[in-house]
Design a protein around this nucleic acid. Sequence first.
DNA 1: CATTACTTTCAAAATATTTTGAACGTTGAG
DNA 2: CTCAACGTTCAAAATATTTTGAAAGTAATG
Lengths: 192, 192
Amino acid sequence: MNENLNAVNESTVAGLGRLTRFFGFNDVMGRLYGTLLMNPEPMSLDDLAETLQISKGSVSMNMRSIERWGMAREVWMKGERKKYYTAESDLWTVIRTVLSGREMREVSTALEVLGQSVEKLRLDEAELTEEEKKLAAYYLERVGDLQSFFEFAQMLLSSFLAAEEGPDFGGVTNLNLDKDFDLDSEWENGTG
Amino acid sequence: MNENLNAVNESTVAGLGRLTRFFGFNDVMGRLYGTLLMNPEPMSLDDLAETLQISKGSVSMNMRSIERWGMAREVWMKGERKKYYTAESDLWTVIRTVLSGREMREVSTALEVLGQSVEKLRLDEAELTEEEKKLAAYYLERVGDLQSFFEFAQMLLSSFLAAEEGPDFGGVTNLNLDKDFDLDSEWENGTG
DNA sequence: CATTACTTTCAAAATATTTTGAACGTTGAG
DNA sequence: CTCAACGTTCAAAATATTTTGAAAGTAATG
């Protein structure tokens, strides 16, 4: 095969591997995804293992994750017994799945924990010594900052995800970065 | 110490550890940061090692990263020979430093690589067989999608970072993402 | 229902990351 | 200059993650 074609393919696959690793996934996920993405035809597990020179076990496990994250889907090849996969080429879909399934959960969990902390402190205020009350007030301030921060992140994610758009980025670009946007006043964050 | 105060402290520290790990850093970084954040007074390396029950070496190394990422700064305690640290309590500053120093670089690198790929393919088009030209066209399409995607990410990051603001989140909010928010829609999703 | 062609699983091995602590620097005080 | 009190470094040890491959599972086919 032409060496430039090959170079493009390889650097793309490697780059996607780097990206998935950066996002906290295994980089094999990215390389599998990239391999599928750069292949016009669907590929079987064996094809993938062969191409990337990794074991079938690893391909199998990572392909499961890939499917879970909506990065590829099975494809039926008539007359074939093997499973074939094809990449979800709409990156917008991919990123939305990841953001909603993972980052969103992370943020929600953080907010829950913080909420519980605040509640505990408030409920117990009566039992504290003067000294402890001071510390409790300090904690509430810090925890409040964190809450604001996470609520902000949650809002950003939600609005990002709320753009229902389909397969092209045109849909996303009604993202208007210059207009005023009126968020709640809750967004102060005392310097501390 | 009152057990609720303690619980709040610990869950916050643990939560921040989880967060830094999620962001691809060592979780000790988050725990150190959290410990500093939840302590009204600056703390020395020994204090931190003692509080988190980890070695001085680890504290030293991780505090270096923490400083690099603008998550804490040194504080001079008069009459003291030790280094004291205090957390940067403005989370906005922290996230900006991380986004601009790390994610931004990641995206730029990706775009560079993609740009080179495209150029190579275009320059060499003449030398390709018909078969290869077809594949090249396919590659260009895929790579083009990736470019759009990363350019979009870059734009989002830039506009996020362009909000020069100080300690409140008001400055960010001229980011208008879209029409309807639906904070109640369901975020729950298959686990990883 | 037996065979065959695949996929999945999982424990052991390989690899990568993190932690430790003791040795080595550095700085300020005397 | 020497000592004492720190901070930093880094190689070895401890942990955690990833990979492998062989065995077990599954489903289509005859």
